[in-house]
């Protein structure tokens, strides 16, 4: 009897594990299918390509051009990654190669706290510090006038937000490089910096791509903090001192207040689907890049 019940428990625990896994796998698929079905009405009426490349956004007149939102998202995301990645690489190298072990032990919980802060706090910080800094100091330096609610403000806030995520992975990446590789390089007469530049960075390259890819995915989807500082003006931005209106902000600002404008609901769902698609695409591309660079080591 006892034997039998243990056997049943053994089998049933496996069953629950498989069920959890299936649910996990189904989630993104269900999400994508749901978004697609919801955005079908607008896709049946207007061509997908036109929707992507038009910059006219006038829901009342039935004009839904997504270009301003897509370009704003791309601007903010890439600018933030360009700011965050070098900072993270240098910090990770310092913490793993130069600093005492104690410094790393102190830094790790700090990084975790930064990663765990609610994004609205970063948003408030952006409004209080970054936006005035841009309007009073940075823009005048370039001879420009702006309210400070700009792509640049969004990118700065966003870069601070993604730094802990990228940094955490990079620390792990550099920490798992075997010490013998450093020793091998030093023992043929390389300096520490040469070793880092020619050996460690190269070895870490796939990890750097994957960390950056994760940063891009997070930055792309971040909503509140960005929405609070980018200005939310529907216009294709042409400089970092322009205001922007990223995709997540579009959805968050308007969903639920669509009144009964036809197709508005469907258009916002399409915005979500585009967001989903772009993040998926970046994940795929960074995975490809990782596989390629791992093969070449």
């Amino acid at each position: 009897m006892r034997f039998l019940s243990r056997k049943i428990r053994d089998k049933s625990s496996l069953f629950w594990m498989v069920i959890s896994l299936v649910i996990l796998l189904l989630m993104p698929i269900l999400l994508a299918v749901g978004l697609y079905l919801k955005s079908l009405p607008i896709l049946q009426e207007q061509s997908f390509w036109d929707l992507l490349t038009e910059s006219d956004w006038k829901p009342m007149q039935g004009k839904f051009g997504f270009l301003p939102f897509i370009t704003s998202s791309l601007w903010v995301t890439f600018l933030s990654i360009i700011i965050a990645t070098p900072v993270c690489i240098l910090t990770a190298i310092y913490l793993t190669q130069y600093a005492k072990k104690r410094v790393l032990a102190i830094m790790q919980p700090i990084i975790d706290i930064l990663a765990g802060l609610p994004s609205v706090i970063y948003g408030v910080w952006g409004v209080l510090i970054v936006v005035p800094f841009i309007s009073k100091t940075v823009a005048p330096f370039f001879g420009l006038q702006t309210s400070g609610y700009t792509i640049l403000a969004g990118a700065i806030v966003l870069s601070i937000m993604v730094i802990p995520f990228i940094l955490n992975i990079l620390i792990e990446v550099f920490r798992t490089i075997p010490e013998e590789l450093t020793e091998a390089s030093l023992s043929v007469g390389a300096t520490k910096w040469e070793t880092i530049k020619y050996v460690l960075l190269k070895k870490a390259f796939p990890g750097i791509i994957s960390a950056t890819g994760l940063g891009v995915a997070r930055a792309f989807g971040e909503t509140i903090a960005v929405l609070m500082v980018v200005g939310n003006v529907v216009k294709v931005p042409t400089s970092v001192f322009d205001s922007g209106y990223p995709l997540p902000a579009l959805i968050a600002n308007n969903y639920g207040e669509m009144l009964s404008i036809p197709m508005y609901d469907s258009a916002l769902m399409l915005a979500a689907l585009i967001l989903f698609g772009i993040v998926l695409l970046f994940n795929f591309l960074s995975r490809m890049a990782i596989i390629r660079s791992e093969k070449n080591q």
Binding site: P178, E180, L181, E183, A184, S185, S187, V188, K202, K203
Partner: peptide, 14 residues
Amino acid sequence: KKMGLLAQRPYPLP
């Protein structure tokens, strides 16, 4: 540089 080092396992540079 005066000394070549050979470790327990081979660690080829990447």
